[in-house]
Design a protein around this nucleic acid. Structure first.
Lengths: 227, 227
DNA sequence: TTCATACTTCGATGTTAGGCGAAGTATGAC
DNA sequence: GTCATACTTCGCCTAACATCGAAGTATGAA
């Protein structure tokens, strides 16, 4: 007994409803202030402050001071992956808090998973890249860009050299809770989503994880990543 | 707010130290009785009973009555994958409960991850299978056996037809918390570990997740799965 | 300097839930 | 039948912690 990592500490951090709401909100990928997170969680500012301090102490969140605001964000990609894995299980058990409302289909179609694209479109993109042999399984990590893939993403406008410089993995799998299949995470996943938004193909919906494609953006995306 | 799956419920289930101990013990893959789990968790039988009821209600555990014993086990592969993901994060943060003791190196070398092989040897096996093009990335799921791979595992003694019949995925990736790389899960991962044990190459250490290879078994394993 | 905003810290309160003793049920052995 | 084991249910206690009001600190604006 008592061997291995201590999952109880992290579980208890996620286990409080107010904190879970905050983490879910931060899965949207944008850094949020303590006041915004308090509203999302449905608690007062004092309570939120205490929760945020605990999450930061537990290593789930990082804080950035900017003027009199404090912006909080998930501390690493790995936190997002972990939360997505919990969501996948919870969704499988039918443990959804909101009745499948009008937002739900939009979330299943395309949403932000911390910093990359998830949902049907996210899965489709990875499938398409693999089918075109632009991403492959490797023995070094889960996924790797092939030479063809590097050329492809550079032609899309991704600064591959910059990605390579960083110590973060370029490609990672992330299990999609709505599709129950993998989509692309890692710094390339982040770069591609950023690109779609900068191109004006898609934009984030405020206060939601949903991603809304424009008509032209959707057309371009579907042509770039055929099924 | 309040969109997406409810992770707080599952987090709180994992967040209690007694329950976390039980789940960690069950990651060993063997079904355990309520009394055994009470001992692992360090609580009385009454307390354990209450915890087990909650874990079962939350869908993390299944129960099987056998005479006057009740055997508990993780309910699905997905629970194991989720717990391993939490452990990966906790280990990364240095949140280990036990000081790196004598057991630790053994655990890092080879251990059970619910029902399949993990640790250095688990990662090595998947690397080797991929390098030999016996497992590949697919657009249907994370991993797939190639034709060469099917022949290979059948020659090792795996009943491939039986695996195919079940609705469970044959190959899955599982992130290894000690190596921080993927190893092979799914029904094939389970079948291979079972095989190693049935062949007498390795055995499970009692009350631990460690897997001990015999000298002959280790030699055979390393030859079968070169780096 | 004065005021306002953004947030933290302190202190008190109240609910929750983990813990266990005691009593109750179920299965098996004799 | 009686006894023993394995486990559950009940009831009570206690400790932990989420919550918020009030007061304190830091930053920026006027």
């Amino acid at each position: 007994m008592k061997e291995g990592p201590d999952i109880a500490l992290i579980g208890s951090l996620i286990g409080d409803p107010a904190r879970a709401n905050m983490l879910t909100a931060l899965m949207g990928g944008q850094a949020l202030t303590a006041t915004e997170l308090a509203a999302q969680a449905g608690v007062t500012l004092q309570t939120a402050s205490s929760h945020l301090a605990k999450l930061e102490a537990g290593g789930l969140l990082t804080q950035r001071k900017q003027g009199r605001h404090r912006y909080y964000a998930l501390s690493e990609d790995e936190v997002g992956l972990m939360l997505e894995s919990l969501m996948g299980f919870a969704a499988g058990k039918g443990l959804t808090r909101s009745r499948p409302g009008p937002k739900d289909p939009a979330l299943r179609k395309a949403r932000v998973c911390y910093n990359h694209l998830a949902g049907d479109y996210g899965v489709r993109m990875l499938d398409s890249l693999i089918a075109a042999r632009q991403i492959e399984m490797t023995d070094d990590d889960d996924l790797a860009l092939t030479d063809a893939g590097r050329i492809r993403v550079e032609s899309l406008g991704v600064d591959y050299a910059a990605l390579r410089k960083s110590r973060r993995p370029i490609c990672r799998t992330c299990l999609d809770w709505s599709e129950r299949r993998s989509h692309l995470a890692g710094s390339l996943g982040e770069a591609l989503l950023t690109l779609f938004i900068e191109n004006g193909w898609a934009k984030r919906e405020q206060n939601s994880r949903a991603i809304l494609f424009t008509a032209a953006g959707e057309k371009a995306f579907l042509e770039l990543f055929p099924r």
